[in-house]
Design a binder for these strands. Structure first.
Lengths: 357, 357
DNA sequence: GTGAAAGCGCTAACAT
DNA sequence: ATGTTAGCGCTTTCAC
């Protein structure tokens, strides 16, 4: 008697959501059958299927994703670990990832390391504790260094089996990766300057331990070489990172030289923003006094001067491709398949003075 | 014998992470005790505590968050449902929310409804299925309408008990809310125009079923009234939403009038971007031909002309306050406490022509 | 202060 | 084709 009361208590309480057991009882079948109907994991007669679906409907049953994942070890959640949450570029990538995942019935964890490698690992670990199905990482780790940043074999294994890196990845790691053709696009931008006859061309870039910085730098040098222009070390400014501050510092440095450059290649959108601020402070007019080409578009270009010539990263495609690649990887269980490196192409957008030239 | 083999198999396999049982065994205590040590949920002698912590360390044990949440009904995950993922404003809010949550040991789900109310509800439901502890919502639902968009009592209850709305909320709902002083800030902006002597002042705004649009509109009218300026209906342009396109349409309309306005109040940052595009197309110079004040700053203002006078929303504070409020609400179990409405103040930034005036 | 046992809601293996 | 049973990894009574 006691137990019966308890059971009915449970069924009465309106704040607790219905479980698979409630559905089974109402449909007059076993919980296992309900599970099979909902997951299409075994054939069931149309008759019982109908009963189950009806019960689901009347109870407004929604399955508990946690219990399901815990038991089946199959999660419908993907984590996205980014290293910055500042630029419109990353916002677009996030949007594409979120959209692609949700279209496939997945949810997204979002975490930001703010450029701290240790924090990045913490985020990955905490996502693992929540049994995510996989992770997309915009890493801030340039190189695996067992001394400075030990990574457990478990994490290492996870990074290889259930991750996709975007934009950049730690050098020497064999991982799936989605990025852009940094070298080629940089080459094209610098070539525009060279074709126009400029020879005193500067570069503002970040630390070349960063993959993207390194590749863009390489494109710059390649172009100079192809046009037989010797490198003037005074025109090379390489700051700590690809951020705004570095751009500002680069402007302060380059614009103070005895013979300033005629043209500058800026290796990122944030660098460009900082560089423009520096120009403004120094009273240098853009366009006019100096010619700029930049990697990555800057948001406001369509609205107001200056219209900068740049290459536009396919930010949406980057996110979409990364998400699709990860889902594919997770769903086909082949553990040992070869890693893939996808390079999407940037579009070089020619604006302003170049149109006249 | 058979079972023993199985057990040892289990312990050998290196791909499975250690469980609380493994820790308990190694420390020579029961799983319950390990749980109590880790969660500080009961007093334990320092001696056994030490043993447990040691075992945790050597096994590199990390507790399974899913199992923990499933059993304790206490989740460390918060969902953020946004209605758009386009502007830098929302990026900042997201950043603040993510940061605040992670500082408190929480993880964040991110979902975007893209302005579709039905999708918004789906997102909330799927988060509920994952047993999130609470949700922060930038809603696109202006009004509860049982006919068009039925909301189950369960969801309704959840929205009231474990949610915080940001930026706007459905009219008539009694919920926790974090927003800004839309009316007051708009008043101040329009007052700047009035004090400078303008009388032919226009407004570009979104549909006033949207809370923010309504309040900003109200501030506009209040200012005109206070300065005894009668409203000229031709100068009121109210489009569908607060987006860029509406701003462009507003520019096309207002700049084509026989006697165009001398000054315009733009009720959002995106409206401003669109309006500027319209000005550019029509060859109207800003600043110069027409005076603008805008609600919400636009990203590039510090770098390039035009420097617009505007009010800056405290986007970081909005996100941080919303997250803190939600965590507080969840942690203090008082179910029936009064709802709170927090209004943060915008900073009016006076730039350009106003400085000379 | 500690442990045994039950159970959160689900799915997978094994019967029938 | 369906049901029975066990158990994912954890927390929580309730004994001792």
């Amino acid at each position: 008697m006691e137990s019966k009361v308890k059971i009915s208590m449970k069924k009465e309480s309106r704040d607790s959501k219905p479980t698979i057991v409630d559905v089974a009882r109402l449909a007059g079948v076993s919980p296992a059958t309900v599970s099979h109907v909902l997951n299409k994991t075994k054939r069931v007669t149309p008759e019982t299927e109908e009963k189950v679906l009806q019960a689901v409907k009347t109870l407004r049953y929604q399955k508990n994703a946690l219990a399901s994942t815990l038991r089946s070890r199959n999660s419908q959640v993907i984590g996205f670990v980014t290293s910055q949450l500042h630029s419109i570029f990353w916002l677009r990538v996030i949007r594409a990832v979120e959209y692609t995942l949700s279209q496939n019935g997945y949810q997204m964890f979002l975490g930001c390391s703010y450029g701290d490698p240790a924090r990045e690992l913490e985020l990955i670990e905490s996502m693992l504790q929540s049994m995510v199905g996989g992770v997309i990482i915009a890493t801030c780790i340039n190189e695996i260094n067992e001394k400075e940043l030990p990574i457990s074999p478990q994490i290492m294994n996870f990074l290889e089996e259930r991750c996709v890196f975007v934009d950049t990845y730690p050098s020497g790691m064999n991982v799936d990766f989605v990025g852009v053709n940094n070298e080629e696009a940089s080459f094209q931008l610098v070539e525009l300057l060279l074709k126009k006859g400029y020879r005193r061309i500067a570069m503002v870039n970040g630390d070349s331990r960063i993959l993207t910085a390194r590749e863009r730098r390489s494109g710059f040098f390649k172009a100079l070489k192809e046009y037989a222009v010797s490198v003037d070390e005074r025109y090379i400014f390489e700051g700590k990172n690809l951020g705004k501050r570095t751009g500002l510092e680069g402007a302060n440095y380059l614009l103070s030289l005895d013979s300033p450059p005629e043209a500058v290649f800026l290796a990122s959108g944030n660098l460009t923003v900082g560089f423009l601020e520096g120009c403004r402070e120094k009273g240098v007019r853009i366009p006019g006094d100096i010619e700029l080409v930049g990697f990555d578009d800057i948001e406001w270009t369509p609205v107001i001067e200056p219209f900068l010539t740049c290459c536009v990263q396919p930010s949406w495609d980057i996110g979409e491709t990364a998400a699709s690649l990860l889902l594919e990887k997770i769903q086909e269980k082949k553990e040992g398949r070869a890693k893939r490196e996808v390079r999407l192409k940037c579009e070089v957008v020619i604006r302003n003075t170049f149109q006249k030239g």
